[in-house]
Simulated scan of single mutants.
Amino acid sequence: MMKAILTKLFVPLISAVSCLIAAPASYADIVISGTRVVYPASAKNVTVKLENRGIKPLLVQTWIDDGRENANPQELNVPFLVTPPVSRVDPGKGQSIKVTYLGGQLPQDKESLFWFNVLEIPPKTTDGADKNILQLAFRTRIKVFYRPEGLKGAAGDAVKTLQWSVNQSGKALSIDVKNPSPYHVSFSRAQLVSGKNKYSLDTHTVPPGGKESFKVTGLSAVPAGAKIECDVINDFGGSIKSEFTI
């Protein structure tokens, strides 16, 4: 799932990464061509396309992190090279970013997850050049899946292998999800359905061979015959609809 963050910038570009606030009512001008990047191990590199849909030229910084979203990009040690790391994108124009795997000790029996970051910086104002100016910039993060060759099964079928169970602790209710596949499973929506009643699940990405616990909203016990309905995001950003009986 794509994640957008509004960043306060106090001049240095890199320092912006550590100053983050949520911005649900604001929108970025730089649009990424997809909602995720899949990097096959056999690929020499992959390309991520950006487009400036705003009315002003923007300075764009791109990098990959290992899940530590607040870490300074210069302090990260990831096995990928992103070029160009900084570029200017004029309004209505695009920019192609090349991601190259540099090699390293990544697991070869399952996918590895990283994050592709885009930080857009608006042009400086011409008013008060000697004053401290507060700038607002957007940062967008999307998942990067490094996919080794020869993994068992297909990524689109991973949802079919999920194992669901009820976890009841007093009045606290959650649904445990185990993923025995070598692929990450990312949800866009999941709910527990009992008759005409539907209860939202607080979902997370379930890693390969991992297990996650989804909290159930508005329910203290699972009725007999209840089922799970969910949408899982595929490699192209579309949804795979699935249904499971609890």
Rank of each mutant, 00 (worst) to 15 (best):
Met2Arg: 13
Met2Thr: 12
Lys3Val: 13
Ala4Thr: 14
Leu6Glu: 12
Thr7Gln: 10
Ala16Gln: 12
Val17Ala: 09
Leu20Thr: 10
Ala22Leu: 10
Ala25His: 11
Ala28His: 04
Ala28Glu: 02
Ala28Cys: 09
Ala28Asp: 01
Ile30Trp: 03
Gly34Glu: 06
Gly34Val: 01
Gly34Leu: 00
Thr35Glu: 11
Ala43Arg: 07
Lys44Trp: 00
Lys44Met: 01
Val46Cys: 04
Val46Asp: 03
Val48Gln: 02
Leu50Gln: 06
Asn52Val: 08
Asn52Tyr: 01
Arg53His: 13
Gly54Val: 05
Ile55Tyr: 11
Ile55Gly: 05
Leu58Gln: 04
Leu59Phe: 08
Leu59Thr: 09
Trp63Cys: 05
Asp65Glu: 05
Asp66Leu: 10
Gly67Asp: 12
Asn70Val: 14
Ala71Tyr: 06
Gln74Val: 14
Glu75Ala: 14
Asn77Ile: 08
Pro79Ile: 10
Pro79Phe: 06
Val82Met: 06
Val86Gly: 00
Val86Thr: 11
Ser87Gly: 10
Arg88Lys: 12
Pro91Ser: 04
Lys93Tyr: 10
Gly94Cys: 09
Leu102Glu: 12
Gln105Glu: 13
Leu106Lys: 02
Phe114Ser: 09
Phe116Ser: 02
Leu119Pro: 00
Leu119Met: 15
Pro122Gly: 10
Pro123Phe: 03
Gly128Leu: 12
Asp130Ser: 11
Lys131Ser: 14
Gln135Tyr: 13
Arg147Ser: 11
Arg147His: 01
Gly150Asn: 14
Gly150Ala: 12
Asp157Lys: 11
Ala158Arg: 04
Ala158His: 06
Val159Glu: 01
Thr161Val: 07
Ser165Ala: 14
Val166Phe: 02
Asn167His: 11
Ser169Tyr: 10
Leu173Gly: 07
Ser174Phe: 10
Ser174Gln: 14
Asn179Ser: 10
Ser181Arg: 01
Pro182Ile: 00
Tyr183Ser: 00
His184Gln: 07
Phe187Val: 03
Arg189Val: 00
Gln191Glu: 15
Ser194Arg: 06
Gly195Gln: 07
Thr203Phe: 05
Gly209Leu: 01
Lys211Gly: 09
Lys215Leu: 10
Val216Glu: 06
Val216Ala: 05
Thr217Ala: 14
Thr217Lys: 15
Thr217Gly: 02
Ala226Glu: 07
Phe236Leu: 05
Phe236Lys: 12
Glu243Tyr: 01
Phe244Ile: 06
Ile246Asn: 03
